[in-house]
């Protein structure tokens, strides 16, 4: 005789088809920042990471990858990284040993190189809708007019439906109105001081430009702690000194909040 309780085991496959999965918050690890965020980033949400300046694209990408690594630890599904195969992005390629040293498992990562923004958005949406990857990282350098409010709303809705986290790393682009759950501006920050005056863990100067249903305007410096798999507050170690490359756009920040 079959037991009802066995048949009632919920299957992961049904994700997306059945009832919406309740949202999970993804804490970044730094207590002060998580408290400001009301617990963390929305696990099945769309989050945007804008490079503060042209050369900060790598920082936006690095921060997004840190978030992706935390999400993978929470969720276990693989990471799909979509990147442009033409333009400046083609000259710098993701490097497995370096990614492993950030705490990402190369086996759990698939890279999709696409010729233009249109293909990238389409493939990204397909991936998010399928629900197979736990994190979809859209890594776009340069402006992409196709990524408008409608496109981002589609991504956000699909993300909620399948419980997928969608991360948008943007370099060389101005923040535009979108349906993102959070929007960050990321700049490189000096790494925490270390003996021997050598560079240490990745550090990011962050400004929260928008947080749906929460406070924005948060500014902090976080460092990525690979061994703990979390972000930690780097400001304490910096003696409260603000990083040199810190951009600040108080007026613009207000504009963007209304736009979203």
């Amino acid at each position: 005789m079959r037991s009802d309780s066995i048949l009632a085991i919920p299957s992961k496959d049904k994700r997306g088809a059945g009832a919406p999965v309740p949202s999970v918050l993804l804490a970044l690890g730094a207590e002060r920042v998580d408290a400001e965020l009301g617990g963390g980033l929305k696990g099945d949400g769309l989050h945007e990471f804008y490079a503060a300046r042209g050369e900060d694209g790598i920082s936006a990408l690095g921060f997004a990858l840190g978030v992706a690594a935390r999400r993978q630890a929470q969720d276990g599904r693989p990471l799909l990284w979509l990147r442009l195969s033409k333009g400046p992005a083609a000259r710098a390629l993701p490097y497995g040993p370096g990614l492993a040293e950030l705490g990402l498992s190369p086996r759990q990562l698939t890279l999709l190189l696409l010729p233009d923004g249109k293909a990238l958005l389409r493939a990204g949406l397909d991936a998010v809708r399928s629900g197979a990857p736990g994190v979809v990282l859209l890594d776009m350098q340069g402006p992409c007019p196709l990524l408008d409010l409608t496109a981002s709303r589609r991504l956000a809705l699909a993300a909620e439906e399948t419980g997928t986290m969608v991360l948008l790393a943007r370099g060389g682009a101005r923040p535009a109105p979108s349906a993102a759950h959070s929007r960050w501006e990321v700049a490189a920050a000096p790494s925490p001081a270390r003996e021997g005056n050598m560079p240490d863990a990745p550090a990011f100067a962050l400004t929260l430009l928008r947080h749906r249903g929460g406070r924005d305007g948060l500014a902090c410096t976080l460092a990525w702690d690979r061994d703990g798999g979390l972000f930690c507050d780097a400001q304490g170690r910096e003696d409260g000194q603000a990083p040199a490359s810190r951009p600040f756009h108080p007026v613009a920040a207000n504009d963007w909040r209304e736009a979203g």
Binding site: S11, K12, D13, G76, R77, P78, L80, S85, P94, G96, P97, L99, P106, L109, T110, L111, L112, L113, L114, A119, R122, A123, D126, A127, S130, G131, A132, P133
Partner: peptide, 27 residues
């Protein structure tokens, strides 16, 4: 099932964007 779903997704993406677009880290 997660791995199988991922394989199915990658197959679909390969049909549309070409198998050469999908890469894995190797070394």
């Amino acid at each position: 099932p997660a791995e199988r779903d991922m394989a199915a997704l990658l197959d679909r993406l390969a049909v549309r964007h070409g198998a050469g677009a999908i890469l894995r880290l190797a070394g």
